[in-house]
């Protein structure tokens, strides 16, 4: 009886899960293994889309490719700059938004808005703002006697401009998360601190920061992963990978190898490498924040 029943439940559950499992199996689980397999093919036929052989040649090719080095370096720079800066700024803004300043309803709406918007469209707006000739930013700087800067056309400036855009786009999500975290801190902790006559800064160091610990770790992990996936921001801002490929990123590299160069195994190998790098960083960050939490 019982066995009969559990079999029936199993079948029923599978029917419920079928639509989701089908999609996930075909478009998520299968590609994981297939992409991994593809990265080890020695030879790949573009027309039949089938490969043969087994070896590391794609990885060796990618790791020796100067363009990949550039993409890797840029992605690191982008992550190292945008992640800490956007976290510090968004924490600061979230604290101010949480302080019952007049008009905070309006401010919240303003600060959250960039979360819903399209990176290509807003990137285009930034392209317009940072245009070297008739961009409003250079005109504004001109009022202070600063000469026009080639924000988008000078390879030395392009990563800087990309980081500004990246920070601007990344703030909204982080402010929402920090604000929710701040509102979840037990007010009694602050009351106790005030009885001890602890100043604002001390309260921030002793209560706010430790209480936000897990959220901080979460923000770092998510932000780093997203920074490593940076791609649409580049397209929105430059239309391609910037002057002299100066703003190329890992995802851009992968897409370019796959779609423009039709080097499928190379693209797969760079995709796997990207996955590994993201994994390593996620683990390091989780480790570090767990250790801090234990102390």
């Amino acid at each position: 009886m019982v066995g009969q029943n559990s079999k029936k439940t199993f079948l029923k559950a599978m029917l419920y899960l079928l639509p989701a499992l089908l999609v996930v199996a075909v478009f998520v689980i299968f590609p994981m293994f297939h992409t991994l397999r593809m990265s080890f093919y020695e030879d790949f036929n573009i027309y039949s889309k089938e490969g043969s052989g087994f070896g590391l040649s794609s990885y060796i090719w990618v790791l020796q490719d100067p363009t990949f080095h550039k993409a890797l370096l840029n992605t690191f720079i982008y992550a190292v700059v945008t992640v800490p800066v956007s976290i510090v700024l968004s924490l600061f803004i979230a604290i101010l938004l949480d302080s019952r300043i007049r008009g905070s309803k309006f401010f919240q709406t303003a600060y959250f808005l960039p979360y819903v918007t399209n990176a290509i469209a807003i990137g285009l707006a930034f392209r317009f703002i940072f245009h070297s000739e008739f961009g409003v930013f250079n005109k504004f700087l001109g009022l202070f006697g600063i000469d026009a800067i080639q924000w988008l056309n000078d390879p030395d400036w392009s990563m800087f401009t990309l980081c500004i855009f990246g920070i601007w786009s990344a703030l909204a999500f982080k402010i929402v998360i920090f604000l929710a975290g701040l509102q979840g801190i037990d007010p009694q902790l602050y009351q106790a601190a005030r009885i001890d006559e602890a100043g604002k800064w001390k309260q921030f160091i002793k209560i706010t920061l430790p209480q936000l610990g897990p959220i901080m770790a979460y923000q770092f992990v998510i932000a780093t992963i997203n920074a490593f996936k940076c791609y649409e921001e580049v397209i929105g801002l430059f239309g391609d990978d910037g002057p002299l490929h100066s703003a190329t990123t890992m995802v851009y590299y992968m897409y370019d190898k796959f779609y423009n160069a039709n080097r499928y195994t190379i693209a797969a190998a760079s995709g796997v490498l990207m996955f590994l790098i993201i994994m390593v960083f996620t683990f390091i960050q989780l480790r570090m924040s767990n250790k801090k939490a234990e102390q």
Partner: peptide
């Protein structure tokens, strides 16, 4: 499966 970046699937 959520740990794997979706950029990796698109090739396949």
């Amino acid at each position: 499966t959520m740990m794997v970046p979706s950029q990796m699937y698109i090739i396949t």
